[in-house]
Simulated scan of single mutants.
Amino acid sequence: MSNLLYFPYINLPRTDWTLRTLLYYDNIGSIVPQEYFYEPERNYDQFMLELVREGLVTPINPMDVLDNPWTSTRPFIELIQENRKKLEKAQNRFIAGNRGNIHSDKFSKANIHADKFDQEIFYQLEQLGLAESSGGRWYSVEKRTANNLMNFLATLVSAKTDRLPTTDYVKPFHYRNSFKKIQEKRETILRNLIPFPQDIDLTRLMRFKEKHSDLLQAFRTQVELIALDSNIIEGTPLFYQRLAELTQRKDELSTKMNESQFNSILFGTVCGLIGAYQGIAAASTTGAIFGALPGFANAVYSALQIERAENVFDQSGLKYLALADKRLRR
């Protein structure tokens, strides 16, 4: 999949993980309450607001995605009701205050906004002794139940919107082992290949992705060939060999772009073009600009080296990262 659904939080963190994710996927979705659409400046943090404005992150209201919210979430309530012992333990944790004490937008730990579900599910959780209103349209929910409920919702929304659910949260969620291993393997590959600084201009990032969408697809194919191959197990010599091959190819491309493989041809072309203009320049007030041909030619040559980095040939899929390293670093 080329698109993600980020959870359990609303705001993506300003971290290396987010940058890698932005570079690797076409778009990231985030589940947000309805009020965030009307007053984004008031609700998002500054980094998230910029991501939304640049189109790098798409806010998603689950009520616009799910056709039958209560019917869709009823199996979750039924699952809780089936195991009375687990239910009693959860009730005791809720009574004991195991709800967390964090900002309301970090709903996965304790507080969930009513807009994220049909009101019926909160009524049912209240009847089960696992939730209560915490003011406004926020509900305080027993911590483990809240985590499971948000995982449940993220899975439903991901399936409906054709997105891959993902998180930067350290502890694993409920996904089966094979899914978790693929995610961890993918993250290891990206962490080694994309060690970019955090202060990248998001407008430039969006323009770069739009311009080089074909290269992004080629790069993603190379990574997924490793991530999805069950024979390539993370931590084995084969895994590190494949990772080293990708890293080496990326470094080779970066070197070619910096040194340029067009040195003699390009410099000769620049001198030829400028020489053709000399006759015109000598008869005009701009003659002084072209008077020092070697210096001027070097300046134009250097500029064209930067512009012609895209011309470096590559079939490995790593050209996307080499260009990103050259174009996006401040």
Rank of each mutant, 00 (worst) to 15 (best):
F76Y: 08
K106N: 10
Q81N: 15
R93G: 02
F76E: 01
K89R: 14
L56Y: 01
T73P: 08
I60H: 01
I60R: 01
H103D: 03
N92W: 10
S104I: 06
Q81A: 14
P75W: 13
R74S: 12
W70N: 08
E78K: 14
L66G: 04
L79K: 13
N98D: 15
E88W: 00
D64E: 13
F94N: 00
Q81Y: 10
K85F: 02
R99A: 04
L79Y: 11
D67L: 08
W70E: 13
P69R: 05
E82S: 14
G100F: 04
L66N: 05
T58S: 08
I80T: 05
V57M: 04
E88C: 00
R99I: 09
D105K: 02
R84Q: 14
F94M: 01
P69Q: 08
E88P: 00
T71D: 14
A90Q: 07
D105P: 02
D105R: 03
T71S: 13
Q81W: 09
T58W: 00
N83D: 15
P69C: 07
G97C: 12
R93S: 07
L56W: 02
N61I: 03
L56G: 01
D67N: 08
R93K: 10
R99M: 04
P62E: 09
E88K: 11
T71W: 05
I60W: 02
P75G: 15
N68K: 15
E88M: 11
H103F: 04
N98A: 12
S72I: 07
V57T: 06
K86A: 11
L79P: 00
A90K: 05
D67W: 01
A90W: 02
W70H: 14
H103E: 06
E82C: 06
R84Y: 10
N92F: 10
Q81G: 14
I60C: 02
T71V: 13
T58A: 04
A96N: 14
D64M: 08
A96F: 09
I77A: 09
I77H: 07
I80P: 10
G97N: 09
Q81P: 03
T58Y: 03
K85S: 07
P75V: 15
I77M: 11
N61G: 03
D67R: 11
H103M: 04
A96H: 11
H103N: 07
R74Y: 15
I80F: 13
H103L: 04
L79C: 08
V65A: 07
V65F: 02
N68E: 15
N101C: 10
Q91G: 02
F76Q: 00
D105V: 03
A96Y: 09
Q91F: 01
D64R: 08
I102V: 13
S72A: 15
M63Y: 07
T71M: 12
N92D: 14
N92C: 04
F76P: 02
A90H: 07
K86L: 13
P69Y: 10
P69N: 09
S72Y: 12
F76K: 02
P59E: 05
